[in-house]
């Protein structure tokens, strides 16, 4: 009661300009706000509740407390392996991708004749729709008829890997595909922008010092690119941890669960077995992992990311 009158009196004291700011601010914000509450916050909280229930769509959700969370840690054979696999994929794929894009951007940032042709060339694979590049790489890496293995056999390697059909090689195959389609794409464009932001005078100073190319890259380019490396790594990890389509279209999580990533596990539980409660618990656990990891990266960034001029 007291707070209500207080807010009314405060509103009365608002100047017309301030009232206008609030009115129009919320008016223009309205579509997003409805979407945020109805498609994000509401469902997010609903899934938190569902995660504490047993629910198979047909009946009503039955409250079971933390049982779903206990189950995932103690009574789900696929839980830890799928989590570990997801981290293996992201932990190997993202650093390789970021380093590859950076190296390529450094090569392509030189003032050389015809360089824009090369930029376009490296950008092309990122235009291929993900599903199309998956089927393409499955074909290139086909055990018997793929050009990669036929070439390897031509070079005298009699027993080339089975790639997507070999449990040990399935994730590396996905990583190879991912590198091909992402190294020259947006990530590299962001690196190019970062490179163009490096003040010319620092390179001039290097030239006068007689510093070699490697020295220049090591002591000027890379330190000044750390904000870009950080940005690309954070976005890359968030994306790679959620990989679904690539693994699903390539192998449906196989062979023998070799590419059974965490998001496949969630999907299978929720949309194939209709264990909605358990699926929601898995999804919430996964969200906490991703948010925690992102916050951790932001904390750590203070130790290695260098902002020039600050």
């Amino acid at each position: 009661m007291a707070t209500a009158t207080q807010s009314v009196s405060r509103k009365a004291r608002w100047s017309p300009a301030k009232r206008r700011e609030n009115l129009y601010g919320y008016l223009f914000l309205a579509p997003w706000l409805i979407g945020f509450l109805g498609l994000f916050l509401g469902p997010g909280l609903a899934s938190l509740y569902l995660s504490l229930t047993k629910y198979d769509v047909i009946g009503t959700p039955e409250f079971i407390g933390a049982a779903n969370y206990v189950k995932m840690f103690t009574d789900d054979d696929l839980f830890w392996p799928s989590l570990w696999r997801t981290f293996y994929f992201a932990g190997l794929g993202v650093p390789l991708g970021v380093l590859g894009s950076m190296a390529l951007a450094i090569l392509l940032n030189q003032k050389l004749k015809g360089i824009s042709v090369y930029r376009t060339l490296f950008f092309m694979p990122s235009l291929v729709p993900l599903v199309a590049s998956v089927v393409l790489w499955k074909w290139l890496l086909d055990t018997n008829f793929g050009i990669v293995n036929q070439t390897l056999i031509g070079f005298g390697i009699t027993d080339p890997p089975g790639w997507f059909s070999d449990r040990r090689w399935a994730i590396p195959s996905l990583i190879i595909m991912r590198l091909w389609s992402s190294i020259g794409g947006t990530q590299m464009i962001i690196f190019l922008a970062g490179l163009q932001g490096i003040p010319e005078e620092l390179y001039d100073a290097c030239a006068i010092d007689g510093a070699g190319t490697w020295h220049r890259i090591r002591h000027v380019t890379i330190p000044l690119l750390t904000p870009t490396i950080f940005f690309n790594s954070v976005l890359g990890i968030i994306g790679a941890l959620q990989t679904f389509a690539a693994a699903f279209v390539a192998t449906e999580g196989g062979p023998g669960y070799a590419t059974w990533f965490f998001s496949l596990h969630i999907w299978k539980q929720a949309f194939d077995y209709f264990n909605m409660g358990y699926g929601a618990a898995l999804a919430w656990f996964f969200a906490l992992i991703i948010v925690g990891l992102t916050i951790f990266q932001m904390r750590m960034s203070k130790r290695w990311v260098f902002y020039y001029g600050e």
Partner: peptide
Amino acid sequence: MIPATVTLIPQ
């Protein structure tokens, strides 16, 4: 940064 799967099930 929130994975789509969190909101997907209730949606």
